[in-house]
């Protein structure tokens, strides 16, 4: 088991944001979390990456408890994240953003260089804009940069928080095919999406969250054919 979350409880002040959430991700999988805004998807992601401290429960990464670790150490274990809203360093160039992505691996100069070439190969648009301030990129390009930046840390588990948010429909499709490619290269993916339909199409398994609780957990195929899921999240 790559990632295992057991009975996670998270509070924001008096608000109970996650109630006893349990979730598992096997190596090599794409797992998606779907649900409305405020359901707790982002909170789960943020707990895994150490930005939010759970009050109780545990998170195990490859058997190791990580819920008490600071965020920057979790990155070194091999968990990368493209955060919601992309959060690129818009006052720095595309290249500097990617370099910061490899912050934990600075001693491996040659490898980092190689990885950067790989990211540029995967996202040719970024190569074209290498020296540009990332704040001047379009939304789609910024999303690519956010994913590329996360990949620079050579994560074994990639957390993607709403990668398709606010992108034009044709860009949304290309983002999903990129996720599939990344997964094919051996990176396990945990994906949070509003776009439930697309997400379930590429995922192996899915979790449906509602008001801080896991409502359903099943294979994507089963979720896609589940009537209540179709009505509530797929808009049919």
């Amino acid at each position: 088991m790559m990632l295992q979350i057991r009975n996670l409880d998270v509070y924001y002040g008096a608000i109970h944001a996650l109630e006893s959430v349990s979730l598992e991700v096997e190596e090599g999988e794409i797992v998606t979390m779907i649900g409305a805004n405020g359901a707790g998807k982002s909170t789960t992601i943020r707990s895994i990456s150490g930005l939010v401290r759970p009050r109780s429960g545990e998170i195990l990464f490859e058997g190791k408890p990580i819920h008490t670790m600071p965020a920057h150490q979790i990155v070194t274990l091999g968990i990368g994240q493209s955060p919601e809203g992309r959060r690129v360093f818009s006052n720095m160039t595309v290249r500097e953003n990617l370099e910061l992505g490899a912050y934990t691996r600075a001693s491996h100069h040659a490898e980092v260089k190689q990885d950067m070439e790989k990211v540029f190969h995967q996202f040719p648009r970024l190569k074209e804009r290498e020296a540009q301030l990332s704040g001047t990129l379009s939304g789609g390009e910024q999303q690519m940069l956010a994913i590329g930046r996360a990949l620079m840390a050579r994560p074994r588990l990639l957390l993607l928080d709403e990668p398709s948010l606010g992108l034009a429909p044709f860009l949304v499709r290309s983002i999903f095919s990129i996720i599939r490619e990344i997964n094919a290269q051996g990176v396990t993916v945990l994906l949070v999406e509003q776009n439930a339909n697309q997400a379930l199409k590429i995922a192996n398994r899915g979790y449906v969250l509602e008001t801080g609780r896991v409502l359903l957990a099943d294979t994507s195929a089963n979720l896609l054919s589940n009537d209540s899921v179709r009505a509530a999240y797929l808009g049919e």
């Binding site: 990456s49 965020a71 920057h72 990155v75 070194t76 955060p83 959060r87 910061l100």
Partner: peptide, 13 residues
């Protein structure tokens, strides 16, 4: 610029 995003890069903020 963004302490949270920096932490996600593995920077010990």
């Amino acid at each position: 610029f963004d302490p949270e995003a920096a932490a996600l890069m593995g920077i010990p903020t």
